[in-house]
């Protein structure tokens, strides 16, 4: 089975904005599924609300598009009812850690066997560019025209506060690292969380003075550096994988 079999071609082109990197992540997820040779009948994609939530409809597999913030509990329910299925959550930061933050907290604590792909663009993109919990400090948005005065949510800290965890931070510019992380997450037996640093050009980048999507893509290249062997946790602006094969006590 090749990667093209995982895509619903009659729904193409996608309704994402020109230059949006969700399509790049979507493409690399299909490539990772091809590499891991996951049969189409034995996987489910769940996604919540937001631009990236649309991805569930573009996968040619069983998929659910659920209400605001409830992607993780629905995925966990599917996994508990049928243990053979590989359940993938593909959603954005506003859905997973903003609205559904409590579900994320407890799924990470219970170490449920689901793979969560979180596209972190630091904004509530689809609703018009309001300030999100992941917006970096001091950035101008629609609802914070003088810059945000709060620090962003520490997603890595939430995942790694448990006894057993798998967390990766990668970006939509570093596509080879992204593909490697996706493949590794599909193999991990337990809760795997991938934070893909991304951008929103139409509702966030234009307010900061960016003209095109690729300008923001190249900014990711300048901002983030790869750290193949992190010592402890990842620092800010570092990409890598942290994991711990511990036992819950």
């Amino acid at each position: 089975m090749i990667y093209k079999d995982y895509v619903k071609w009659d729904r193409m082109p996608t309704n994402w904005c020109p230059g949006c990197s969700i399509g790049t992540v979507f493409r690399h997820l299909t490539l990772a599924l091809e590499k891991a040779a996951v049969p189409r009948e034995q996987m489910v994609v769940v996604s919540g609300i937001g631009c990236s939530g649309r991805a569930a409809g573009y996968f040619n597999v069983d998929s659910v598009h659920v209400t605001h913030g409830r992607a993780i509990p629905v995925a966990e329910g599917i996994k508990r009812s049928n243990e053979k299925l590989k359940v993938i959550v593909f959603s954005g930061d506003g859905d997973l850690v903003g609205i559904g933050g409590n579900h994320f907290l407890h799924s990470a604590r219970r170490d449920s066997d689901i793979k969560v792909i979180c596209i972190n663009n630091g904004i509530y993109g689809m609703t018009g560019g309001q300030m999100a919990p992941t917006t970096p400090f001091g950035e101008k948005t629609l609802t914070s025209p003088f810059g945000t005065s709060y620090a962003p949510l520490n997603i890595q800290g939430i995942v790694t506060s448990n006894a057993r965890y798998w967390y990766a931070r990668t970006s939509s510019y570093h596509v080879n690292h992204l593909l490697k992380c996706l493949g590794e997450a599909l193999e991990w037996p337990g809760f795997a969380f991938i934070e893909v640093m991304s951008f929103c050009i139409e509702n966030f980048g234009r307010r900061q003075g960016f003209k095109n999507g690729f300008d923001m893509l190249f900014k990711l290249k300048q901002d983030y550096k790869l750290n193949p062997k992190p010592d402890g946790l990842l620092k800010n602006h570092e990409l890598g994988v942290v994991k711990n094969v511990g036992q819950a006590s």
């Binding site: 082109p13 230059g19 949006c20 095109n212 893509l217 190249f218």
Partner: peptide, 13 residues
């Protein structure tokens, strides 16, 4: 051409 949105990412990369 059916799928292309003319985002110019390929041209710049």
């Amino acid at each position: 051409p059916e799928y292309c949105k003319r985002c110019f990412t390929c041209i710049n990369i």
